[in-house]
Design a binder for these strands. Structure first.
Length: 476
DNA sequence: ATGTCC
């Protein structure tokens, strides 16, 4: 009988494997396991630890054995920057909605020697380094994975001078133009005459070094594209229950365009390079290694800061291109435009001193600052105004947050059930995988209720025509 | 999130 009983980190630690990167290498050996039971595997693991030399050429354990012989994961104590015994304080909003893994990651982040304060938003879930929905203020240090892989991932909303009732006569045009002017999928961009122009491509930061210079062409190609995963471009109806003086918009329902995407391949490449540089310089204990940080005064820190800002502005430019194309295509006037990053780091004041506030999947919500918190492809999104809650480091959630992991959703959800929900909500969907189904997300109303102290709702957005990247299995 | 491990 084939025994597929999984082996996890705890099993290996019980055998004496240290909680260092050696544990990760050891777990990889389990992926090559063929026809061996868990008991047999564990017996091998024990012997590899005791006599690694004998396993150097083994087809399953060779890599692990080599790592042990080379002393990987037995780093000299003095190389490692210790975490503080007691972390700085952090507030949690809607803890009943938050998975334990995210809270553990926040606890680790709070123990960083550079940590000043933190906060966890109600849509938080486990990420790489800092949890998604995590906010962390640090002193003179930037954590590339505290910003995230998709630097400058953001929302942009255009509200048009078109009344909601007119939407139903425009559906054909809206859908056609949405398909015509947007581009989705990993690696995808525009070619030839379809490439967009924007001042961002002339920015001096592209001349900082050869690394960033090499990303300029890709940035041009992908300018105005949306990428994959949970990114979208959608038409919907924006409902103001009362007149908003600041926006100068009367009570009523308006056609609106909402977009969610980031800095595409360019930002991901910057994030990857600078987190690696940070890890080489800033060696932290195993559980904190993805929180490696750069001193802002160091050369690498200044390079990252400049490139992060460039990637943020590039992400903004991508939204601008999409909104400009579609606004022109439908010949509408824009009454108001609102936008915000939700994966970024800012220099802000906290209790009288300057700190670096990392928001990784969190909406800036300083007093009076507007932001957009999307729901799902069928659930409403909200235009909000920050209340400036210092305990939340002036932040709010960046969405509903997942209720099902991507794999769970793909495995358990049925295409006809998703279709039924879309039909019920009157939403037309172009693209998207099952992992983006409405049921894969938490109830946005509960998430909003959990952050009533952080933001006021200004208006509500109801999605009507949604485009996302095609399902991975259907991708060309 | 990203052409999914340089």
């Amino acid at each position: 009988m084939k025994d597929n009983t999984p082996i996890n980190g705890n099993d290996l630690m019980a055998l004496g494997y240290p909680q260092t990167e050696l544990l990760g290498i050891a777990l990889k050996a389990n992926k090559k396991r063929t026809g061996l039971t868990k008991v047999e595997m564990l017996a091998h693991y024990k012997m590899v630890l005791d006599k690694a030399e004998d396993y150097i050429n083994h087809h399953v354990f060779g890599k692990l054995a080599k790592a042990i012989v080379e002393g990987v994961g037995q780093r000299e104590e003095e190389d490692v920057i210790p975490l503080r015994e007691h972390g700085v304080g952090y507030s949690i909003y809607g803890s009943e909605h938050i998975e334990e893994g995210a809270i553990k990651q926040m606890q680790t982040a709070a123990k960083l020697p550079v940590a000043v304060a933190g906060a966890l938003m109600p849509d938080a879930h486990q990420g790489y380094g800092l949890p998604i929905g995590g906010v962390l203020a640090t002193e003179n240090a930037v954590i590339p994975y505290g910003v995230g892989v998709d630097i400058g991932c953001r929302m942009a909303l255009s509200i048009f001078d078109i009344k909601g009732v007119e939407f139903y006569g425009m559906e054909g045009l809206l859908k056609e133009q949405l398909v015509k002017h947007t581009k989705f999928g990993a690696g995808h961009g525009f070619q030839g005459q379809y490439k967009a122009q924007h001042d961002i491509l002339d920015r001096g930061e592209f001349n900082l070094n050869p690394f960033i210079k090499n990303l300029q062409d890709k940035a041009w190609e992908q300018l105005g594209s949306s990428g994959g995963g949970n990114h979208f471009v959608e038409w919907g109806l924006m409902e103001f229950l009362e007149r908003d003086e600041v926006l100068n918009i009367d009570k009523g329902t308006y056609l609106a365009l909402l977009t969610h995407s980031g800095s595409r391949g360019m930002g991901a490449t910057i994030a990857g390079r600078y987190t690696q540089i940070a890890k080489d310089i800033c060696k932290l204990p195993y559980e904190a290694k993805n929180l490696a940080y750069l001193d802002l005064k160091s050369e690498a820190g200044q390079e990252y800061w400049a490139m992060m800002n460039l990637a943020g502005d590039y992400a903004s430019a991508c939204h601008e291109v999409i909104h400009d194309k579609l606004t022109k295509a439908i010949g509408a006037e824009v009454l108001a435009k609102i936008e915000n990053h939700h994966n970024f780091a800012w220099k802000e004041m906290y209790q009288g001193r300057e700190v670096i506030v990392h928001r990784k999947g969190a909406t800036p919500a300083s007093k009076g600052v507007m932001g957009i918190i999307p729901g799902s492809m069928t659930a409403p999104g909200f235009l909000v105004r920050g209340k400036g809650e210092e305990d939340a480091l002036n932040s709010a959630s960046h969405g509903a947050g997942r209720q099902m992991s991507r794999t769970q959703a793909i495995k358990n959800l049925k295409a006809e059930d998703i279709k039924a929900v879309l039909a019920d909500c009157g939403v037309q969907l172009i693209g998207a995988g099952k992992d983006e189904a409405p049921m894969a997300y938490k109830d946005i109303h509960q998430v909003m209720a959990a952050q009533g102290e952080l933001v006021d709702v200004v208006a509500m957005f109801t999605p009507k025509i949604v485009r996302m990247a095609d399902d991975g299995s259907r991708e060309d």
